[in-house]
Design a protein around this nucleic acid. Sequence first.
DNA 1: ACTTGGCACTCGTAGACTGGGAGTGCCAGG
DNA 2: CCTGGCACTCCCAGTCTACGAGTGCCAAGT
Lengths: 336, 336
Amino acid sequence: MDDRKLAILRAIVEDYVSTNEPVGSKALAERHALGVSPATVRNDMAVLEEQGYITQPHTSAGRIPTDKGYRLFVDRLSTIKPMSSAERRAIETFLAGAYDLDDVVSRTVRLLAQLTRQVAVVQYPSLVRSSVRHIELVPMAARRLLLVVITDTGRVEQRIIETGSDLAEDSVAQLRALLNTCLDGRSFAEVPLAVEDLPERVAVEDRPIAAAVLSVLLETLVERNEEKIVFAGAANLAHVDFSRSLRDVLEALEEQVVLMRLLGETGDPATLTVRIGTENQMEGLRSTSVVATGYGMDGQALARLGVLGPTRMDYPGTMGAVRAVARYVGQILAGS
Amino acid sequence: MDDRKLAILRAIVEDYVSTNEPVGSKALAERHALGVSPATVRNDMAVLEEQGYITQPHTSAGRIPTDKGYRLFVDRLSTIKPMSSAERRAIETFLAGAYDLDDVVSRTVRLLAQLTRQVAVVQYPSLVRSSVRHIELVPMAARRLLLVVITDTGRVEQRIIETGSDLAEDSVAQLRALLNTCLDGRSFAEVPLAVEDLPERVAVEDRPIAAAVLSVLLETLVERNEEKIVFAGAANLAHVDFSRSLRDVLEALEEQVVLMRLLGETGDPATLTVRIGTENQMEGLRSTSVVATGYGMDGQALARLGVLGPTRMDYPGTMGAVRAVARYVGQILAGS
DNA sequence: ACTTGGCACTCGTAGACTGGGAGTGCCAGG
DNA sequence: CCTGGCACTCCCAGTCTACGAGTGCCAAGT
């Protein structure tokens, strides 16, 4: 693969991304100082098309990159664009104003949407890698308890428990104390083992209640449950010409499961990954790209965040924004 | 206002809503057994247009209702369409499966979006009318506390508190106990009074911490804070022809403040209200209508929910769905 | 062997024009 | 007050055309 051909591919991607119009040989030779004539460019473009990197919407129109072309561009022709120091400051101060985990996440997702002018998706920090900070049991009604689990990341999980029998104040208090001594500081992975013998340590008459609580607790913590995900910036989709598929994209965004796969469907959870067009398995997201990365405290990824946009997107800028936001969120979380 | 004219207006609204095409005199006279000729219908339509109830997109096209026309239709020409018993059962079972407040709200909003095929908006049950079920203080770091407030509606509020000085285990425990004895069962409105003398009841050295906690607590509970709102069904907008304004609508939906006003901008909070087109003050929502109602337990409204759609919407059906969902959510909440 | 200018060709787009048809307003007669 | 008739308006869809951007190919130049 020729150096000049690569330069031409890069130029095509850049021009097409910024103008949204198929780019022709003449305009290309003019705007980028390639040092060759349009005819030469045409020859190279013919080869690039042959190899599947670009295509023309109709005969006698300019070329646009294919998914394969974008892939090559991302892998070999572009570098992540770092944020300006002004932008970094803005990110930092905006995120620093958050006062709880919900707020951190909601600020993050809006920030990312605004920075990239695309749809941002943020996964809540995973429970799996968290540890228990505190467990609370609150009676809500005669036979109903509210279980609240507070994690070291500041996330608060809540569940209603239906106990088969009526509750005594004492039993609840005892159970709460027991749970906290057993579990305080334990990582969620350790929880099942730690509570194994717990039913045996309560009074016989309280065992059914203990069992009910434990079953809900394990379900909450261990089955990695819903892995909450939020998105923002859907309005940025309206600007793009998605023709018929806009509805599909919006529908996909409202499906938690799809969002999960969107962020997760990749190898290494920690590094910045880009999935382009048909590389996405999901029906309906075939004309979109996803730029995602892990984030977390102390270098270990707790969850992922990213943006979704048309394949025709500014990859270097988007990647820079995603990386920067992920870093700062990590810092904020570590500081909380 | 003639009876026949009203019948004609009703027919125009119904036909236009179902076909999305301007309705002409001939088609109208045929489809609805009005017992008069198209010419007569034309005369009446001319009057209706004169009075501002209908309009024609261009000369020599059929008529479409104006906002004023829809208003008359809603007020005097239509009755709320009750849900079928099958639908009611579906609503009930779908909502009954929820296992905590978050889940109730998220199920509700998705259900409502699906039933109406429009954008559904649901406000979390208001804190203002709730009362305190339990307060928890959890040390997160040397100088950082997590305050968790559990309400009788099952909602859990959390806030991080920066204390100026280091924390002793005992102080925290004492403060927690004190808070709970003071506040358990109190409605949020009573909280400020109940904690007034609280700083005087702790040891002198703990007073700064108590003050910090109290200030955050009051801020959380009393300033009615964010009044969380969620929406779903944005995909249903894609189907509608909003021409340029789709972006505006999506943007409005992502603004909590706008959503609040959308639901709240009305007189009686408990009853079903409809706001049509330009009756909405918000820029960008001039071509949408909002059907909203209060919901809550025991007949008192805790919050509001509703749907947003094009002015050209099936008002009777939408109103029926909103009313039904509000009722069932109220029941579920009361049962929790 | 590669580059370049020339040239014929393709094809999408925009504008002009047209006929048909749906719908209207008005009027005169029942 | 209703009705049928009639002329009129104007949107819409289709056709046609001219234009121009862009291409592929070829033959000549370096």
